[in-house]
Simulated assay, not measured.
Amino acid sequence: MKQTILIVGGGFAGMWSALGAARLLDQQGKSDSVEVALISPEPVLHLRPRLHEAAPHAMSTPLLPVLEAAGVRYIQGAVSKVQAQQKVVLATGPQGEQFTLAYDRLVLGTGSKLHRPDLPGVREHAFSIDQLDEATALDLHLARLADRPGSAARNTAVVVGGGFTGIELACELPERLRTILGEDVRVIIVECNPEIGPDLGPSPRPLINEALDALGVERILGDGVASVDEHGLVTSSGKRIESHTVIWTGGMRAHALTSQLGGDKDALGRLKVTRELRVEGVSGVFAAGDVAVATTDNEGNQSMMSCQHAMVMGRFAGHNVAADLIGIASLPYTQELYVTCLDLGPWGAMYSEGWDRQIKMTPADAKALKRRINTEWIYPPLASRTATLAAAEPTRRAVA
């Protein structure tokens, strides 16, 4: 009877975990005795790093061809419960049917979701670009703005959150809005911290501010949001901004399934894992991507909620979950190269290396690199079985 490695989640971490496991089993001649299965709500990979762009409905790619090439079984469903002691998961299929899956080893790779605070009007009136359907809803809303009577509120978009996602979106919006409305527009970032890009540190900030200035993006710093309504928002200091388009980008949290597993978690709900990406204190369970926080190098740096880390963590998690099952040595996860490539819209992009984010490229060169990342490197390998499995080698570099 075949043993089963179950991958929960079809994002970057889940897909690469499945390929990493299939690769090692193929190398060790164990593909006939161990099945790799991946369960997710849809057989598509949503390209979240591209959801700030126009036409986000096209920002997905089929998963089935790459999984089939690697010999991974796809199961359509959403896991609602992990029973680690019994080694089973409970899931709901596309028609609402309930079913149970047993496993011998499991990798959790269900990613993260935007955290919406319990503030008046945020859930009812603020858009987001966190998930494909949300980004598509925003895109449709923007396209329909031209049907509304002209006003300052119609022509104003407010991005709440001046982090990575907020900056990328704010840099795209002026051109998108001018194309739709054909007149002057206003884009404002509201950030509760006193500086833009608080998590990006001081090194890239002058470049980011230069880009925002050139694109005409205003900043309200050191001020949060008190409430949102259909006509705009009120900041924590009492400032009223009239806007028909308020977009929430601040704050991510690990998928809720992490709360069902024991072991320590960080402030974002991520499972603390060992260097082999095992969930501490939970037998037979590994985690990768946004649901896990792992040490990336010997300096003590920790993984970020990013495509860059999810891809590499997935490869290691897949390798190690298979190694654990068939009884061979695992590989300690390592990702010493850390880069940041931030899209700054028509102005260019920012590329840096190292955890102190030292700028290494001109905005034009960085933009060309970002374009390659978003249109080539983050897409799954659609080739022969040999090439697909080779792409899952754990020490392969990934940039995003």
Rank of each mutant, 00 (worst) to 15 (best):
G20A: 04
A37Y: 01
G182I: 00
T92Q: 11
R116Q: 06
R50H: 05
A55I: 09
A391V: 03
A157G: 12
Q86P: 04
V312M: 15
D297C: 09
L114F: 10
P346S: 04
I39C: 09
L342D: 09
F12N: 07
R176K: 12
C171N: 10
A157I: 06
D213H: 03
T61Q: 04
R270M: 05
V228P: 05
P198W: 12
V72T: 03
A78D: 02
S128Y: 09
P94S: 15
A226N: 10
A135S: 10
D133Q: 08
A383V: 05
D266V: 01
F127N: 01
M304L: 13
D297W: 11
T362W: 00
A37T: 09
Q85S: 08
F286Y: 13
G314H: 11
K367H: 07
G263P: 02
R205L: 14
A126G: 06
E393M: 02
W16M: 12
G77Y: 09
G121H: 09
G314T: 00
G182D: 11
L138F: 02
T92M: 02
A54E: 11
L181A: 08
V339T: 14
I373V: 14
V107L: 00
S60Q: 14
L271C: 03
H231W: 04
R385D: 06
S237Y: 08
E353A: 15
D324C: 04
G289R: 06
G29Y: 10
H231V: 04
A137R: 15
E35Q: 14
I220G: 04
T340D: 01
D139Q: 03
R154D: 04
G232C: 10
Y338P: 13
P332S: 03
Q335R: 14
Q27S: 12
L140K: 11
S306T: 15
I39L: 12
A390Q: 11
S236M: 02
I378T: 07
L207P: 01
R240L: 13
T110L: 02
L19D: 01
G232W: 14
G162W: 10
L233P: 00
I196G: 12
T340E: 04
I359W: 04
L132K: 05
L145A: 01
V291G: 10
T245V: 14
G71F: 12
G345W: 13
